[in-house]
Simulated assay, not measured.
Amino acid sequence: MKKKKHISPTVQPKQKGKIKAKTKAKAKSVPATPSDVEYQHLFDTCTITKEKIAEVDKIIDDKVIANRKRYDDISTMVQAGGALEGTFSTSSLFKSRPQFNAFPGSLQQLYNPAASVPEYSFQQGAGMLPDFSLGFSPKSNPFGLGFISELNSDLNFISNGRIPWYFIACVHYLECGFSFNKHLHNGDPLTALTRQVPAGRPKVNHPPPFTFEESAIDALKLMGFDKVTNWKLPFILRKLEAYNGFGYFKFHSMNSPYLWSYSNQYTKGKYVADGKFDSEAVSAQCGSAVILKRMEDRGLIYIPRF
């Protein structure tokens, strides 16, 4: 009886480059910032804490409105180029700036706004009148300013691509606590070039000390804000939040006190040190969006939405 020939199982040759790797489950992507619609909704539904209204009004009256002309002049000089024309460029220096409690991914959005604002809503409607069907109506105007003339002034800023004076005021508040003895870049003293990132600013043709205006022009151009042509509400709020970073939104699913402290949009939770979040801590600083909201309520400004 013949033995059956044992047939070895066929060994498949290795197929180079065709071995399928195990597919890893994709992590759910988290938006880097609130959407335009979310920013507008937060602002339009913002209610300032009653006990804080007097404090917010004092900030507006004593700091923001009182210094409007200086902010206006800075905006005009940025648009015109001023004596510093040709010395500015959107620099990578700001990208490495150590932000207190900042979310690193937000730095590009803050310091290179022209290149990082693809949203179509910021590119449409230049020079168009705002849509009053949104329900905006100024509640009061204690300074006796003509609302229509003030509104036209604000619209001229937007239609001409100028930085709104109230945006510069908020940056001044966030970076310098309204001090005119500090650099708008980072709050360093004007008696010397900036030491924190971006170091060695402003780039002007004389040694320190510097004026607040020339340093502010340098800071705003360095951050690329002279390239922005439409200053709408979501854009303004996003850039203000970027100064402190998007860590609250990204890591804690909460509204930033940097914008919303003193309002119904914020209760508690705060970074008390770099990278250290305390869920029970409460911010003692007024939010910058709250300042803008109160100014709208009083009929001092109007910020177009979309």
Rank of each mutant, 00 (worst) to 15 (best):
L145Y: 15
F143A: 14
K95L: 14
M128R: 14
F132E: 04
P142Q: 05
F132K: 04
T87F: 15
G135S: 00
N101P: 12
L110E: 02
F122H: 09
G105T: 03
T90R: 09
Y120G: 04
N112Y: 06
P113H: 02
S137C: 09
P130F: 02
N101M: 15
F136A: 02
I148V: 12
M128V: 11
N141T: 09
F122V: 09
S149A: 13
K139S: 07
Q99I: 13
S140T: 08
W165Y: 07
Q124Y: 11
E85F: 11
L129K: 11
E150V: 12
P113L: 01
G127Q: 01
L93M: 09
N156D: 12
I148R: 12
A102W: 03
P142H: 09
K139M: 08
L107F: 11
L107W: 07
F122R: 10
L93Y: 05
L84M: 13
S153C: 12
I163N: 00
F167E: 00
M128N: 15
G125H: 07
N112I: 07
F147E: 07
F132H: 07
P130S: 03
F136W: 03
E150Q: 12
K139P: 07
G86M: 02
S140P: 08
G127D: 00
N156T: 08
Q123R: 07
I158D: 06
S106R: 00
S121Q: 10
D131K: 00
M128K: 14
W165R: 03
V117I: 12
Q99F: 13
F143R: 15
L110Y: 02
